[in-house]
Amino acid sequence: MLEVSHLTSHLGYWLRYVSNHVSRAFAAKLESRNVTVAEWVVLRELYGEDAMAPSHLAERLGLTRGAISKLADRLIAKDFVLREDSPDDGRAHTLALSPAGQALVPALSALADRNDAEFFGDLTAGERETVERILKAVVERRGLKGIPVS
Rank of each mutant, 00 (worst) to 15 (best):
N20V: 09
I68M: 09
A117F: 10
A67L: 07
D73H: 13
R33G: 02
G66D: 10
L144C: 05
P54V: 03
V42N: 03
A28N: 03
P54A: 07
L75M: 04
Y17H: 11
A100R: 04
R16M: 08
G126V: 12
Q102D: 12
G90L: 02
L63H: 09
A77H: 02
A125I: 10
G126F: 07
D79M: 00
P148S: 06
D85A: 04
F119A: 10
F120D: 07
V35M: 02
A38M: 05
D85I: 10
D122E: 13
R114Y: 05
L97Y: 04
L104A: 08
R65M: 10
E3R: 15
R141Y: 10
S86I: 05
E39I: 03
D113A: 15
E59Q: 15
K145L: 07
H56T: 14
L75H: 05
A137H: 08
E31M: 02
A53T: 02
A107D: 11
A25D: 14
D50W: 02
L7V: 12
V139C: 06
K136P: 01
A96L: 12
E3W: 09
V139F: 07
V149L: 14
A110N: 13
G126E: 15
L15T: 12
L71S: 01
Y17A: 06
W40M: 07
V138L: 14
V22H: 07
G90H: 00
E31H: 07
P54K: 03
E59P: 03
L123R: 07
R74I: 04
H6Y: 15
L71V: 01
L43T: 01
S23G: 02
L135A: 15
I76H: 08
R142P: 00
A72D: 00
D89N: 10
T8K: 11
W40L: 08
V138A: 15
E59D: 14
A103T: 03
D85C: 01
E59V: 12
R133T: 15
R16D: 12
E127W: 11
V139P: 08
P148R: 09
A27M: 05
L97M: 06
R114D: 15
A53Q: 07
I76Q: 08
S109E: 13
G66R: 04
